[in-house]
Design a binder for these strands. Structure first.
Lengths: 133, 133
DNA sequence: GGTACAGTTGACGTAAACGTCAATATAGAT
DNA sequence: ATCTATATTGACGTTTACGTCAACTGTACC
């Protein structure tokens, strides 16, 4: 028996609205089946949703996220297509690695800001001039 | 002599439009001075712009970015204010660290995808070298 | 058989982040 | 003085990613 979810179950689990899930289907990011009128989400769509939301947290647009999701759907097996997918994947990886550098830089700078504030609060403050720069 | 930039110089350097810089000023993210009617951007605004664009790459909204920029403007020096800033900074750091986990996970999965494709391509005996024959 | 409830499809509304266009101003070169 | 380049301020347009009705449709339970 394949585990399946109603639209509300999935929405609640991932803290989105049902509207959002319908929207993602309309945008071809999710592909639930139907039981009568109702959508039935399977294990596969649950996994895709997880990836979608992670993509969003990373600041990708839904169009970009769809691109990335398609990378996992190893196409028709045609070699040319596979090569294209491989190229795209490598570019994505490079992009993400540069993004990680951004994250690290931001963390470091915030840490430095914290240290400065902590020093001031301890009274061992650096001068106002230095703190301003 | 304080180094200064026209709106176009800065726009060109960071590959944004002048409209964007005006928009950021309207949103209180940049604070250029004026020479007559014209905006004059200084070293400080250049630094802020750098942070703004990094924030965008990380998927933060301009409102969130403004919050983060304000963290660097050590307020009025009042202790209560400093404590608030410190708290906010720490929350931002935590957020960024969870974001880094997202980045790492995405990279790993894309790498796995690449490996799979590479194996398929090797299995079919159509590496770049053989295909050239 | 009524009603409560979860689900459906339009259709229109909205906030964010600019793009684009028009009318105008000003500074420097010819 | 006039042309050119670059600047300004509105003001409206656009795309993305949904929110928010409205008007139905089954399904479950009493």
């Amino acid at each position: 028996m394949e585990e399946s979810y109603t639209i509300q179950q999935l929405a609640k689990e991932f803290r989105v609205t049902s509207r959002t899930l319908r929207f993602y289907e309309a945008k071809d990011l999710l592909h639930p089946t139907r039981r009568g009128m109702n959508r039935v989400f399977g294990h596969r769509d649950r996994g895709r949703l997880k990836l979608i939301l992670r993509g969003k947290r990373l600041g990708f647009s839904l169009a970009e996220i769809k691109e990335m999701l398609d990378l996992y759907d190893l196409g028709d097996g045609q070699v040319a297509q596979l090569r294209v997918t491989l190229e795209k994947s490598r570019r994505r990886i490079a992009e993400l690695e540069s993004r990680r550098e951004d994250v690290d830089a931001a963390i470091i700078e915030l840490h430095e800001g914290c240290s400065q504030i902590e020093n001031i609060l301890r009274g061992k403050g650096v001068g106002a001039k230095e703190a301003a720069e």
